[in-house]
Computed example of a mutant assay.
Amino acid sequence: MDYSSVLFEAAGGGNPDSLNLLLEYGADANVPKHSGHLPIHRAAYRGHFLALKNLVPVTNFDAIKESGISPIHSAAAGAHPQCLEFLLKSGFDANFMLDQRIRKGYDDRRKSALYFAVSNGDISSAQLLLNAGALPNQDPINCLQIALRMGNYELMNLLLRHGANVNYFCRVNTTHFPSALQYALKDEVMLRMLMNYGYDVHRCFDCPRGDVSHSQYVTDGWTSTVIKDTKFCEVITLSWLKHLSGKVVRVMLDYVDHVNICWKLEAALKEQELWPDINSILSKYLIVGFEIAD
């Protein structure tokens, strides 16, 4: 049984008078539950601002460190920006990372308070954390990837403006090209946002087979949501994505000076409505290349 102190329960209730009375009679704010959580965590998670203000001065940092979790995480997890802002102004570190034993409780092994805020789609909390110096690339799953999955333009833009790595490679379902593209194939706004922040477009056209006929790609185990480690041409020519190839490549060509289109990608593009426009751009590359060579 996970026993908790009377003060811990009072923190969950959020009544500042009850908390003050308990503290006056010697209640210790640094006594954790069996799980390691302190009263300050409970108040921050529940969004009890007045209770939190009373608990901050009587909670030792050593006790917080021992718990393996910051009240910053708790406020972000509960989506309470007022509490979060107060904690940050009180000197709590926006980059305090969850202890390893706490991370094990999450399938995604999250570490940062920012990850909690982004997962909640909580733009206010994410903004507060980033303004306080939170680093956006600390978690095993990139915070930007979460925003991309959600299709949240505002969060994406916020993270990118604060240095989120647009060229990250996901540890699961990795591809030869940076992973962010997988979430933007159907959305031109999202696609251009990635490109504008320095997405490595050239990696998408990096195919060693070139003009040589590609061997039949084995698709056992592939689904529309699981993409294995492979080249862009093999992904975008899959049956459920081929219809997007023209629009995606046409956008990409606005962000590169010269690329070579491999045999497989070209075959798919020739079936698309935008092929004449794409071919015209590629032909200009060749003309410019000949002029430079001359």
Rank of each mutant, 00 (worst) to 15 (best):
S4F: 08
V6L: 14
L7E: 01
F8S: 07
G13Y: 12
N15A: 13
P16E: 03
L22E: 07
E24R: 03
Y25A: 06
G26M: 08
G26W: 06
A29P: 11
P32Y: 05
H34L: 13
H41W: 05
R42T: 01
R42I: 11
Y45P: 02
R46E: 14
G47V: 00
N54K: 13
A63E: 13
A63Q: 09
A63D: 09
G68K: 14
I69K: 03
S70A: 14
H73P: 15
A76D: 06
G78F: 05
H80C: 12
E85F: 06
F92N: 02
N95R: 12
N95E: 06
L98I: 13
Q100I: 12
R103K: 15
G105F: 11
S124R: 09
S124I: 06
Q127W: 02
Q127L: 00
L130V: 03
N131Q: 15
G133N: 15
N137C: 10
I141H: 00
N142K: 01
I146P: 10
A147C: 07
R149F: 09
R149T: 11
G151W: 01
M156A: 07
L160N: 08
A164Y: 00
A164H: 10
A164I: 04
N165L: 05
N165Y: 06
N165E: 11
N165F: 05
V166E: 01
Y168L: 04
F169E: 06
R171M: 11
N173W: 13
H176V: 14
Q182S: 11
Q182G: 07
D187Q: 04
M190H: 03
L191N: 02
R192P: 00
M193D: 09
L194Y: 04
L194N: 04
V201E: 03
S215R: 05
Q216L: 07
V218M: 15
G221P: 09
T223Y: 12
K228P: 01
T230K: 14
T230M: 13
K231L: 02
L238T: 06
S239T: 07
S239N: 14
W240P: 04
H243R: 09
K247L: 02
R250A: 12
Y255C: 03
N260V: 09
E266A: 00
L269T: 05
K270W: 02
Q272C: 13
S280I: 10
S280L: 12
S280V: 13
I292W: 06
